[in-house]
Simulated scan of single mutants.
Amino acid sequence: MKIRSHSESHIVELEDGSKWQVFPGDLDLTLAWKPETDLAVAVADAIPPGAAEAPICLQPIPG
Protein backbone atom coordinates (compact mmCIF):
# COMPACT_ATOMS: atom_id res chain seq x y z
CA MET A 1 0.00 0.00 0.00
CA LYS A 2 1.39 3.43 -0.94
CA ILE A 3 1.42 6.69 1.04
CA ARG A 4 -1.10 9.31 -0.12
CA SER A 5 0.04 12.00 2.31
CA HIS A 6 2.36 12.50 5.23
CA SER A 7 1.91 16.26 5.71
CA GLU A 8 1.71 16.11 9.50
CA SER A 9 4.63 14.35 11.08
CA HIS A 10 2.42 12.14 13.28
CA ILE A 11 -0.27 11.23 10.69
CA VAL A 12 0.21 9.03 7.60
CA GLU A 13 -2.63 8.69 5.08
CA LEU A 14 -2.52 5.61 2.85
CA GLU A 15 -3.81 5.25 -0.71
CA ASP A 16 -7.02 3.59 0.54
CA GLY A 17 -7.85 6.78 2.49
CA SER A 18 -7.10 5.30 5.92
CA LYS A 19 -5.18 7.52 8.34
CA TRP A 20 -2.68 6.25 10.90
CA GLN A 21 -1.16 7.97 13.90
CA VAL A 22 2.58 7.40 14.23
CA PHE A 23 4.07 6.44 17.61
CA PRO A 24 6.26 9.41 18.71
CA GLY A 25 9.35 7.20 18.99
CA ASP A 26 9.01 6.25 15.30
CA LEU A 27 8.67 9.74 13.81
CA ASP A 28 12.31 9.87 12.66
CA LEU A 29 11.77 6.66 10.67
CA THR A 30 8.45 7.62 9.07
CA LEU A 31 9.60 11.06 7.97
CA ALA A 32 12.01 9.32 5.58
CA TRP A 33 9.13 7.47 3.85
CA LYS A 34 8.35 8.71 0.34
CA PRO A 35 5.05 8.45 -1.59
CA GLU A 36 6.51 5.54 -3.56
CA THR A 37 7.34 3.62 -0.36
CA ASP A 38 5.28 0.42 -0.36
CA LEU A 39 3.90 -0.39 3.11
CA ALA A 40 2.43 -3.47 4.73
CA VAL A 41 -0.15 -3.11 7.51
CA ALA A 42 -0.04 -5.65 10.34
CA VAL A 43 -2.46 -5.81 13.30
CA ALA A 44 -1.21 -7.09 16.65
CA ASP A 45 -2.85 -10.29 17.89
CA ALA A 46 -3.41 -9.03 21.43
CA ILE A 47 -4.44 -5.74 23.00
CA PRO A 48 -1.86 -4.63 25.57
CA PRO A 49 -3.15 -4.02 29.12
CA GLY A 50 -4.61 -0.52 29.42
CA ALA A 51 -4.81 0.02 25.66
CA ALA A 52 -8.12 0.88 23.99
CA GLU A 53 -7.29 -1.01 20.80
CA ALA A 54 -4.68 -3.30 19.30
CA PRO A 55 -1.57 -1.56 17.98
CA ILE A 56 -0.96 -1.49 14.24
CA CYS A 57 2.43 -1.80 12.61
CA LEU A 58 3.24 -0.10 9.29
CA GLN A 59 6.39 -1.54 7.76
CA PRO A 60 8.11 -0.62 4.49
CA ILE A 61 8.22 -3.63 2.15
CA PRO A 62 11.80 -4.39 1.08
CA GLY A 63 12.52 -4.28 -2.61
Rank of each mutant, 00 (worst) to 15 (best):
Cys57Gly: 01
Glu8Cys: 00
Pro24Thr: 02
Ser7Leu: 13
Ala44Phe: 14
Gly50Asn: 08
Glu8Met: 10
Glu8Trp: 05
Pro62Tyr: 01
Ala54Pro: 02
Leu29Lys: 13
Ala44Cys: 13
Glu15Ser: 12
Glu13Gly: 00
Pro62Thr: 05
Pro48Ser: 14
Asp45Asn: 12
Glu15Tyr: 01
Ser7Asp: 15
Lys2Ser: 06
Thr30Gly: 01
Ala46Gly: 03
Val22Glu: 05
His6Arg: 15
Ala40Lys: 11
Asp38Gly: 01
Gly25Leu: 13
Lys19Met: 12
His10Pro: 00
Asp28Ala: 10
Asp45Gly: 15
Asp26Glu: 14
Ser5Ile: 00
Pro49Lys: 08
Gln21Ala: 07
Phe23Lys: 10
Glu15Phe: 00
Ala52Tyr: 01
Pro62Lys: 03
Ala44Ser: 15
Ala32Leu: 13
Asp28Val: 01
His6Gln: 13
Asp38Glu: 15
Gln59Thr: 15
Cys57Met: 14
Ala54Ser: 11
Gln21Ile: 03
Ile3Asn: 06
Ala54Thr: 11
Gly25Ile: 04
His10Glu: 12
Glu8Leu: 11
Ala32Gly: 08
Asp38Asn: 09
Arg4Trp: 12
Trp33Arg: 03
His10Ser: 14
Pro35Trp: 11
Trp33His: 04
Gln59Ala: 13
Thr37Ile: 10
Ala51Phe: 14
Val12Ala: 09
Met1Val: 11
Met1His: 07
Asp28Glu: 12
His6Asp: 01
Glu36Phe: 02
Ala46Asn: 08
Trp33Glu: 03
Ser9Phe: 04
Gly50Tyr: 04
Pro60Glu: 12
Ala42Phe: 11
Leu14Asp: 09
Glu15Thr: 09
Ile56Glu: 01
Leu39Met: 07
